[in-house]
């Protein structure tokens, strides 16, 4: 289903990300190589190998900066690994953070369409879901307002609803409910339940250990780009609390 083989990902850490022409000219005048500046690399994923089989629901936990989001980006194809191979069998959703496809200048409704298109829908398909989406996120009054005027919770509601109204074969979620209020989170969890039931594979990144225990059948603990633990969610949570 999803297979990662020795995946390594290095970010370049540039203090000043692009070189100005001036710098380049000065550097070359001084015959300085600029490798000294570019060569600062950061190993975000260090030889990760995992196999996620059909119907497995994988949770990923770990500290801030451990490499969880990076791992999801590699799985979804947003980042190409520096080394190693990624094989994904099945239709995967091309975004990992639910509000990623939003344009703050567009209205809620326009964003439903924009996001739907990014996820591979046609206008007819989105039109068929539009009413249900607006109804579920309870934003009727604000749907024709640019989302830059939404509160962060409202944005999360809309984004979550859109992301869960598509049904890709493989679901990837990174911190999906972080700003919703309690009543919405409950509603969202039951919606997630049905979605997860239907999906062929699920990968969830979250700091909410309860959520992971509730939804996942397997859990990885990631630290500094390496898999430190791989097993049952309950044990993973215990390992995480004890060791990290």
């Amino acid at each position: 289903m999803i297979e990662l083989n020795n995946v390594t990902l290095k970010y370049r850490l540039l203090h000043d990300r692009s070189f100005s022409l001036k710098e380049k000219v000065i550097n070359s005048l001084h015959k300085r190589k600029y490798t000294e500046k570019t060569s600062e690399e950061f190993l975000a994923l260090d030889q990760i190998s995992i196999k996620i089989s059909q119907k497995e629901r994988l949770g990923i936990i770990g500290k801030n900066g451990a490499g969880k989001s990076t791992l999801l980006k590699v799985i979804s194809g947003i980042l190409k690994p520096t080394q190693g191979t990624v094989t994904v069998d099945g239709m995967i959703q091309p975004l990992i953070e639910i509000a990623a496809g939003f344009n703050p200048e567009f209205t809620g409704r326009e964003n439903i369409y924009l996001n739907g298109y990014m996820l591979g829908f046609t206008p007819q398909q989105i039109k068929a879901k539009e009413a249900e989406i607006i109804d579920f996120c309870e934003l009727e009054k604000f749907i024709d307002v640019p989302i830059k005027y939404y509160s962060s919770g409202m944005t999360v509601r809309l984004a979550f609803t859109i992301a869960t109204s598509i049904e890709p074969e493989i679901l990837l979620f990174d911190e999906m409910l972080s700003a919703g209020d309690a009543s919405f989170i409950n509603k969202a969890k039951s919606r997630l339940d049905t979605l997860v039931e239907k999906a062929k594979g699920v990968v969830i990144v979250s700091h909410d250990l309860n959520l992971i225990e509730q939804f996942c059948t397997r859990c990885l603990v990631i630290n500094a780009g390496k898999i430190e633990f791989d097993g049952m969610p309950i044990q993973a949570n215990k390992f995480y609390k004890d060791h990290l």
Binding site: N103, Y117, G120, P123
Partner: peptide, 17 residues
């Protein structure tokens, strides 16, 4: 072309804006 609707949405919304 798989993403033609994304382009359509960007272009039409930006022009409207």
């Amino acid at each position: 072309l798989k993403f033609k609707w994304v382009i359509y949405s960007f272009v039409s919304s930006t022009l409207k804006m």
